[in-house]
Design a protein around this nucleic acid. Structure first.
Lengths: 110, 110
DNA sequence: CGTCTACTTAGATAATTGTCAATATATCCA
DNA sequence: TGGATATATTGACAATTATCTAAGTAGACG
């Protein structure tokens, strides 16, 4: 049973404090944005396009999803702070937000 | 409309091939394992415990979830290849699988 | 103003997921 | 063998999500 005063293995010294709940939620939302195969490939394509960015009209065909589905995934990536868009006439050009993956990189690299 | 033969911005040169569907699914499953705040903190605690590892009995209280919930999340982390466990009597000690985050690290670090 | 094109929003649906209480399994020890 | 403790599984439920079609908005241009 897991009650008060139970004996446990007490295996963690915790000289350093563990990650906070808030920090964990922030980081988890970044990972969640990358946790879908379509969205991961989407982000990969946008990143490959560099500073110029890529028109979202060129992202529909390679990912074999409907245009609204791509639009939805781009919105998720945008709201996660991973990509940004600028308008060029009727087109939207997407590019990676620099340093968007900084905390994620820091976490996975110890 | 998005039909055949449409004119697009053709913004990606694709001298390098984009990530494959299979690779994206593999990577996405790793990110999915880290996409939950509780699981992220869980992984963080396990990793802090180093080679010795941590008894799962010590993971229930700090995460404020029921024992079955922690058990479930540990299973997800295990099946994602991020952690492993060894039995010590009635206890299970969890530790991080070395190099489990290698591909994820490579992806987020460009 | 209309019309074309690029994109977004709405609504629906099937599938997945995080959580818990209850129950089951496993290991140790007297 | 039987009781105590640690962990896993089951079953249920609410919430989220990935996807589509259909319809809406917005900019360019004649």
């Amino acid at each position: 049973m897991y009650g008060e005063g139970m004996v446990t293995a007490k295996s963690i010294p915790l000289s350093q404090r563990p990650i906070s709940d808030a920090a964990a939620s922030d980081l988890a939302s970044v990972f969640a944005a990358l946790a879908d195969p379509v969205r991961l490939r989407l982000f990969d394509l946008v990143r490959r396009a560099g500073d110029t960015g890529v028109c979202s009209c060129d992202l529909v065909e390679p990912l074999e999803r409907s245009q609204p589905t791509i639009s939805h995934h781009l919105k998720v990536l945008r709201e996660a702070g991973l990509v940004e868009s600028r308008r060029e006439g009727t087109w939207l050009w997407y590019s990676v937000v620099p340093a968007a993956l900084n905390t994620a990189t820091h976490f996975v690299s110890r």
